[in-house]
Simulated scan of single mutants.
Amino acid sequence: MNFFDTLSNLELEPFVLSFKLAFATTLILFIIALPLAWWLSQTKSKAKPILEAITALPIVLPPSVLGFYILYTLSLNSPIGAFFDEYFGIKLVFNFTGLVIASCFYSLPFMVQPLQSGFETLNKNMLEASYISGKSKFTTLLYVALPNIKPALLTAIIVTFAHTVGEFGVVLMVGGSIPEETKVASVAIYEFVEILDYESAHIYSGIMVILSFIVLFGVYVFNAKQKKTFI
């Protein structure tokens, strides 16, 4: 089979699953990480370093370690997995739901840290003026803080999305490789290499490289324009 035959027979389902997973993970993490990043940027609590360390753990932990603990926590051997299976009939491993949960843990720091850094660079006088005018912390967050950290906001969303698309170790351990359910693009590439189908692996990998470059290039261009705007 030549290159063009391989390209014409390309299965799009792994890419569709990858982007579906990335979209769901990014949306959920934005809702979770926004108040967490805001609190971390504003608090002087002694618990702040502990929460920051916990949030950053997925960056330094091997994916196999994180994947193992997530797999065990969500499996029927744990109280959490058994509870969802018994009362809701939901199995949290080897399906798309498990992938989303695992991805949220794995990509959490990529959403929290840019948002936190953006909030920490805000002019404190601007926030104080909002509070003095009677605005609540929630209103200040939505209408004062967020509009003024657009580069950090975009970076958090795009990097989280791109990082989730490229996940491998954690999603393989928690979801396995079930076609149309958990077989994302990164897992498909791994399987092509296993069976020595390097041509298909090259095509899938090339598509991932191009997509990742376009995403990151767009972030850097946008941030550069935003910096010029404020100069």
Rank of each mutant, 00 (worst) to 15 (best):
Phe4His: 08
Asp5Leu: 12
Asp5Ile: 11
Leu7Asp: 06
Leu10Tyr: 14
Leu10His: 13
Leu12Val: 14
Glu13Pro: 00
Pro14Glu: 13
Leu17Glu: 10
Ser18Asp: 03
Phe19Leu: 15
Ala22Glu: 06
Ala24Asn: 05
Thr25Glu: 09
Phe30Arg: 02
Phe30Ile: 02
Ile31Cys: 07
Ile32Phe: 12
Ile32Met: 10
Ala33Trp: 06
Ala33Leu: 03
Leu36Trp: 12
Gln42His: 14
Thr43Ala: 09
Thr43Lys: 03
Pro49His: 14
Ile50Arg: 01
Leu51Ser: 05
Leu51Trp: 14
Ile54Phe: 02
Ile54His: 06
Thr55Gly: 04
Ile59Tyr: 10
Leu61His: 04
Leu61Ala: 14
Pro63Thr: 00
Ser64Cys: 09
Ser64Met: 09
Val65His: 07
Leu66Phe: 00
Phe68Thr: 03
Ile70Val: 13
Ile70Arg: 07
Tyr72Ile: 11
Tyr72Leu: 13
Thr73Ile: 03
Thr73Glu: 09
Leu74Asp: 03
Ser75Cys: 06
Leu76Ser: 10
Ser78Trp: 03
Ile80Arg: 02
Gly81Trp: 00
Phe83Thr: 05
Phe84Trp: 07
Asp85Gly: 01
Asp85Lys: 09
Tyr87Ser: 06
Phe88Glu: 02
Lys91Ile: 04
Val93Ala: 03
Val93Thr: 14
Asn95Leu: 05
Phe96Thr: 04
Thr97Cys: 04
Gly98Leu: 02
Gly98Arg: 01
Leu99Ala: 05
Val100Ile: 10
Ile101Arg: 08
Ser103Asn: 05
Cys104Ile: 10
Cys104Asp: 03
Leu108Met: 14
Leu108Pro: 04
Pro109Trp: 01
Phe110Thr: 05
Val112Met: 09
Gln113Phe: 13
Gln116Phe: 12
Thr121Gly: 11
Asn123Met: 06
Lys124Val: 15
Lys124Asp: 14
Glu128Tyr: 12
Tyr131Lys: 13
Ser133Ala: 08
Ser136Cys: 04
Lys137Gly: 06
Phe138Tyr: 09
Phe138Glu: 03
Thr139Ile: 08
Leu142Asp: 02
Leu142Val: 05
Leu142Cys: 06
Leu146Ala: 00
Leu146Pro: 01
Asn148Pro: 06
Ile149Asn: 07
Pro151Val: 10
Ala152Lys: 02
Leu153Pro: 08
Ile158Leu: 12
Val159Arg: 04
Thr160Tyr: 10
Thr160Asn: 12
Phe161Ala: 11
Phe161Tyr: 11
His163Gln: 14
Gly166Ile: 07
Gly166Phe: 01
Phe168Cys: 07
Val171Ser: 04
Leu172Met: 11
Ile178Phe: 00
Ile178Trp: 00
Ile178Tyr: 00
Thr182Ser: 03
Val184Trp: 00
Val184Glu: 02
Ala185Glu: 00
Val187Pro: 09
Ala188Phe: 07
Ala188Val: 05
Ile189Phe: 00
Tyr190Val: 01
Glu194Ser: 11
Glu199His: 08
Glu199Asp: 09
Ala201His: 04
His202Met: 13
His202Ala: 13
Ile203Phe: 12
Ser205Thr: 15
Met208Tyr: 01
Val209Lys: 04
Val209Cys: 12
Val209Trp: 14
Val209Pro: 06
Val209Glu: 10
Ile210Gln: 11
Phe213Lys: 03
Phe213Val: 15
Val215Ile: 15
Gly218Trp: 13
Val221Met: 14
Val221Ser: 12
Val221Ile: 14
Lys228Glu: 11
Thr229Lys: 12
